[in-house]
Structure formats: structure tokens, C-alpha cells
Design a protein around this nucleic acid. Structure first.
Lengths: 347, 347
DNA sequence: TTGTAGGCGTTATCAA
DNA sequence: TTGATAACGCCTACAA
């Protein structure tokens, strides 16, 4: 009940009959102390329920044992998962995760970087490499190590995947199945280099096959399940409707399947759907979703590892690129036979 | 390139020809300074690209402008969304969000509380009211305001929903539709008071109708989509299979629908499915999911508001309970007619 | 092995 | 309106 305010290191020192320095060492470098001294200190600390003050410690030592993470949004399975993995990995090394999101707003991102840096984070993780000039500058002069994820930027450590290739793989798979009219649903392209790269990759694959994906076969949607349905509906109502659709994220693809099924269009028989991400749900859908696997867990682990290593002064600036991989499941199949398979005309 | 190390408040003071105290005031209480002094300081600060040191500031002022949040996991749409909302709300007031997760491990939760408190957070948000005795003690002596979400605990501020009632609503809806054999898929009940309350609520509704939900109609699964499918499969293979299923979370319910459909069991004609949560996807499924709406966004907003108010010394300890509400959509309908409708026997 | 003392960068309390 | 000066709680050479 009547717990006296705060116990400080000096209180423990007094109680144990040693100097503050000794107590400090008991916590940080126990091996330097005599066994019985250590015991005394530990006992006093326990008795007084001493909890070191993190801020004071950070101020004095220059290390906050805190890592900042800036993501586009937490409200996305894939980013949340990365953070989950990072936070677990960091916790093992005694680091705490400070989280900020910017909702695809460059100014908000800049501000977040500033705040986090001012907060004294020992390291910083960011998603994506596209950013305001101002942010880039702040980052460049930051004393704390920084690691980028998902997309790389010259001179900055990163743990990335080749989003361009992910788009390419998705499109190539459909091309291999004989599809010629392929549409894509993507997130808003502004300030989202991941979605841009995936779209560009898909287009590159088509181009290599002497085909193309005109703008009217691309639907920009908010990154939600509903966005996937809307985008799908849009593309299915075209006069020359596509025989296959790529979702810029799995959530879109899953929305597509739902929308198609709701319209009586069988997936994959009448419409092939391919996603990118490979979220948990994709494998368990009916039909299960063909998608490009993004190694989310590994991204989180590597990012955490890379950051901690740099913080402890043990690592170099490294640029790790994790492989993406096509996972063929049941939502994609050969293009329907016939001249104009996907034609919407009833005549 | 050769950015000199760190600019401190005293450097700005020197450059502007004023005392450190004046610079400090220029940032915190500009109204106390003469206009021209303020200008001088601002100019020097801008020129030197001065960034106040958050930790030093926190140490001296006793406020870190940081709020901690402890959730079971980030890898869950519903918690991630709450955090997203909280972080946005807090950012507006200049607070930063420190995140920790414990993966349903009581010890990890205790540790997280300790760490966060030691880190000097100005406030703390927790999910659920069930916790280790040790944690409760630490919390009780914490100087920082605490707010619980999802479940309430005596004497602690909270923003909650009635999980018991949520389960009840789901079950009652099915009872009203004539279902008598109702199964439920829940998360592991250990250290998860939300799932326990929902299950208890459902059982209470059945009991009130002189029915019951025996253990063999309840499947405990990991909180994933796959868990939903597995649990559903389990219950559908019973000799006396249920005519309706409740998902302890929407993700389970969605998994159920998939599993049922994959087995050629029409939803809702042959099997009604009801969820609890009302995540984004539920409204956009086919069939759309009948579920109990949990006001996630509001929980986040209220929690943030409550916490900030208390931190600024303006609010009382309050226990807010937000209403849950049944949302009837297409995944539930009248129980199939006939004596033993859900019988698995082929004879 | 342990103690002393100066500093980490701000804020806050008094005076002036 | 502004300036000294002491906290804030801990770390860490350096000394003993």
C-alpha cells in the first residue's frame, strides 16, 4: 500500500553498505565483484524492490536498449507479423521495440524518424526505401544504425525481397499457363515502392512475352479485402475481361476469389488468381491461393539480428536479399480454351 | 558528411548568446520570452539543427512522452488494429508507443510490464485482466496510470467489452434460429480470459434454454485460420454433428466456412456459422459472416484518451464498457428441418 | 576488488 | 524577462 516513492541505486548502496559504483557494477559486470559483495547487493536490491531507471541509465551510458520501427501501418497482417518477430527477437537481447506508423504519409514518416531518434533509439528499422528528401537526410546523419526492409537503398543496410521479381513470377506463371489478358489489382502507388515494383515486375514479364498490361487492366485500390473485391469487380466488368488476375497483396487476391465466386465465375476454371505475400490464410482457402512467398518471418529475424549486431558494434552494413518463390496452389490453371475466352459478350 | 557529433542545448544557448534556461524555455514555454529573444534562439536552433535529447528531457522532467502497450500478440488483426488506432491517437498528443507482446505467457507479461515501467513510460495499456500475481503487484505499485482493455479488473481503469455477453449473443442468435446442437471453436483457454468469457457466455445462453454445450462440442485451437479449419473438421466428423458453429474469433468462423464448403456442406443451409470480432474481412466474405461486433477502433481511441487524460492529470480512473452487438449477415439461418438434421450416419 | 568524482543533456527553482 | 545552479539517476574512468 504505502510504498515509498522510488528506490534509487544509491539507496541500495546505502542499505548494502557499499558505494553506488559497486551496485552499478553488480548489475552490469557482476564478474568484477567479490561473491559476498555481490550477494549483499542483490539482497538489498531485492529487499528494496529496486528497479533501475532506464532513462537515467540511457543518459549516462548512451544506450537506451530500445529499437525503433517505422511501418506504413500496423493494420496489415504482413507488417504486424514482421514486428511480432522483431519484437520477440529483440526481447531476447534485452531490447524493446518502439513502434510508429505513417499511413503512407511521407511527412509523418519524417516526423517519426525524428521523434524516434530524439527518443534515443539504439537502432531504427524502416519499411521501404522510398522517402522524402528530408527523411533521407536525417537518416544519413543519424548516429544510430538503420536497417531498411522490403526495399533497398544504396549505402543503407537492408533486408529485402525483390518485389519486382515477385511481380514477375506471378505474371510469368500465368503466361506459362497460357493467359494473355492479365489484370492486376494494386495498392495506391503513391509513396509505396513495394506495390510499384510488383506492378512493374508483372509488366516486365508481359513485355518479355510481347504482351502488355494497359492501365485499364490495372485497378488501384486501398489495401483491404474490400479493395480486392472492388478491384476485381471493376476488372470483371470490362468488355474484354481478363482471364487471370494478380493481387498486389494476398488480401487482394483473396478478395478477388470471393468476388468472382459471388458472381458465379469459377476459380480457377474461368478465372485464375495469383497473389503476392503468402499470408497464413492463403494456404487454407478454397481454392487455396497460388502466390509468391515473401519470407516475412525471416525478414523480421534478419532485420533484428542485423540491427543488434550493428548496435553492439559487431556487424558491417549489409544488404541481404531474401529469395521470393512462387507457390503454386489451386487458384490458378490453364487459360480457358477458345478464341476470346474471357469475353463478356453474351451474343 | 562530416556532421559534428551532437548539438546540445548549451550549444544553442552559446550561439544565441543566452543561457541554457532560456533555450529550454523557448521550447517549452515560448510565451514567457521576449519576442526577439525567442527569434534568436529559434534561429540558432535551426542553424545548428538542434534536436532535444528525449532521455535527458525525460530524466529531468519526469515525463518520457511515451506510452507502453502490452498485447498477447501483434500477429492478430484485432490487436494490431487497436495498436494502430492508439498509436495514431497518441501521436497527435506527442506520445510515442512502446510495444511488447507476450504470446500468452504470464511470465513474459510480467517481464514486459517491468521493462516498460523501468523504461519510464508515462502510461501503460494492457489487454485482458487475467495475470500473474506478481504482475498485479507490480501494476498496483506503478506510479504510471494503467488502462486495461477487453476485460476489466477491480480498481484499474479499463476500456472493455462484455466478452461473456458476446458469446451469449452469438449462441442466442443460433438458438433463436432453432439450432439445438451448437459447437464452438475457441482459442487455448489458458491465460486467455477473453476466450474463456466468450465460451462461458455461449454456454450460459444454452443453459438458459435448458440445453448445454458439452466439452466434445468445443474444440480448442491455436488462434489461426488453420485452427478454424481444423476445429471445424473435428466437429463435423462427430457422429452427432452440430448444426451450427460459433467461432471464438472471426478468423475461426471464416476457417469454418471454408472447411465446410470444402466438404460440400453448404453454409448456411446445412451449417450456420457465427463469429465474434467483426474484422474487416467478415463483411466481405461469401457468404458474409454473421458475427458479434467488437468496437476495436473505439477501444483504441478510448484507451488512448483515457491514458492521456490521466497522464495530464485531468482524468479519473474510469471503467468504460463499450457495447457489443450482433451483426446478422448471411452465414447463419434456420436449423435444417428433420429429426436429426446434422446426423452423420449414412444408413 | 571497491570507492571517488565528474558528467550525460534537460528541466526546474530561485534570485536578480 | 532572464540567469545561475541544483537536481534527475546512473555510468565510468581513474584512483586507491
Amino acid at each position: 500500500m504505502a510504498a515509498r516513492r522510488k528506490v534509487r541505486l544509491i539507496d541500495v548502496a546505502r542499505d548494502a553498505g557499499v558505494s553506488p559504483a559497486t551496485v552499478s557494477r553488480a548489475l552490469a559486470q557482476p564478474e568484477l565483484l567479490a561473491a559476498h559483495t555481490l550477494d549483499k547487493v542483490h539482497e538489498s536490491a531485492r529487499k528494496l524492490a529496486y528497479r533501475p531507471n532506464g532513462m537515467a541509465r540511457a543518459l549516462a551510458s548512451g544506450r537506451s536498449m530500445t529499437v525503433g520501427a517505422i511501418v506504413p501501418t500496423l493494420d496489415s497482417a504482413i507488417f504486424a507479423q514482421v514486428l511480432q518477430v522483431m519484437q520477440s527477437a529483440l526481447a531476447k537481447d534485452g531490447y524493446q521495440l518502439l513502434v510508429a506508423s505513417h499511413e503512407l504519409n511521407p511527412a509523418a514518416e519524417t516526423e517519426a524518424v525524428r521523434t524516434l531518434l530524439a527518443r534515443g533509439v539504439d537502432g531504427l528499422m524502416l519499411v521501404g526505401a522510398e522517402r522524402a528528401f528530408e527523411t533521407a537526410q536525417v537518416l544519413a546523419t543519424a548516429e544510430a544504425p538503420v536497417v531498411l526492409t522490403w526495399c533497398a537503398s544504396p549505402g543503407i543496410a537492408s533486408v529485402t525481397v525483390d518485389n519486382h521479381r515477385a511481380g514477375q513470377l506471378a505474371a510469368q506463371h500465368l503466361l506459362d499457363l497460357g493467359h494473355r489478358r492479365i489484370g492486376m489489382i494494386v495498392g495506391h502507388l503513391h509513396f509505396n515502392d513495394r506495390q510499384r515494383a510488383r506492378l512493374a515486375g508483372a509488366r516486365a514479364a508481359l513485355k518479355a512475352a510481347a504482351l502488355d498490361m494497359p492501365d485499364w487492366l490495372v485497378s488501384e485500390q486501398p489495401l483491404t479485402f474490400a479493395g480486392g473485391r472492388t478491384g476485381c469487380a471493376e476488372l470483371l466488368e470490362l468488355d474484354e475481361r481478363p482471364t487471370a488476375l494478380i493481387g498486389g497483396i494476398d488480401v487482394f487476391a483473396i478478395g478477388c476469389i470471393q468476388e468472382a465466386q459471388a458472381r458465379g465465375i469459377a476459380v480457377p476454371e474461368m478465372l485464375s488468381v495469383v497473389g503476392i505475400d503468402d499470408i497464413d490464410m492463403s494456404a487454407h482457402m478454397s481454392p487455396s491461393l497460388t502466390t509468391v512467398h515473401i519470407p516475412t518471418t525471416q525478414i523480421g529475424q534478419e532485420a533484428a539480428r542485423s540491427l543488434v549486431a550493428r548496435i553492439e558494434g559487431e556487424g558491417e552494413i549489409s544488404q541481404i536479399e531474401l529469395p521470393v518463390e512462387l507457390v503454386v496452389r489451386r487458384s490458378s490453371t490453364h487459360a480457358p480454351v477458345g478464341g476470346a475466352p474471357g469475353r463478356n459478350s453474351q451474343t
